[in-house]
């Protein structure tokens, strides 16, 4: 299951659960009761929800941050220097090999761009920003051979939507450093 699907399912479940609570409140609102016991129950629920969010959710958020791409290192990666221009990508190589890390050194010659790698099925598999004056190192391992597209994911002017390049990913071991 892709990260996108996990994110979408979690979002859907959370919104449905929340919606169910709202529907219940709406459904029972006509049945007037004293506020004090209702409020007491609400305070108890609040306490439980608070501690669940803190004791369960917060550690998950902190642990998930460990899965960040910022300090990624790869032994003997294949290196691709990528520079964004209005409105094209300049890649110093357009073929890499699947199964071994590729280090994209991404920058821009003019304005901000977004370097988004899409697989043959049109799914976004990795990205970083391309910013003038900075080089962002994105390390990615292509799981499968095929033709991947690089789409611009940061609005950069009038031909932003046509700023597309191709990367061919071949089978086999990497043959260069």
């Amino acid at each position: 299951m892709s990260i996108q699907t996990v994110a979408a399912v979690l979002t859907l479940l959370a919104i449905l659960a929340l919606g169910a609570v709202f529907l219940r409140v709406r459904w029972l609102a006509h049945d007037g009761r004293d506020y004090a016991p209702v409020q007491g129950t609400a305070y108890r629920i609040r306490t439980i929800v608070f501690w669940v969010l803190v004791l369960v959710g917060l550690p998950i958020s902190i642990l998930l941050f460990r899965e960040n791409p910022y300090s990624a290192q790869a032994a003997a990666p294949q290196v691709v220097n990528a520079t964004g221009y209005q409105w094209y990508w300049d890649l110093d190589r357009s073929e890499v090999t699947a199964g071994t890390p590729v280090e994209f050194r991404v920058t821009s010659a003019d304005v901000n761009h977004g370097f988004g790698i899409y697989d043959a099925g049109g799914t976004l598999v990795a990205q970083t920003q391309a910013m003038p004056g900075y080089v962002n190192r994105l390390i990615h391992v292509f799981d499968a051979p095929g033709t991947y597209d690089v789409l611009c994911l940061e609005y950069c002017g009038l031909v932003h939507h046509n700023m597309i390049a191709e990367i061919v990913v071949n089978e086999g071991e990497a043959n260069d450093d």
Partner: peptide
């Protein structure tokens, strides 16, 4: 967290079994 448990739950508590007609 504060959005969910204070404003959100607070609004729901005020409405719950309040006897109002929507």
């Amino acid at each position: 967290i504060p959005v969910l448990i204070v404003t959100g739950l607070g609004a729901l508590a005020i409405l719950h079994r309040s006897g109002i007609r929507w």
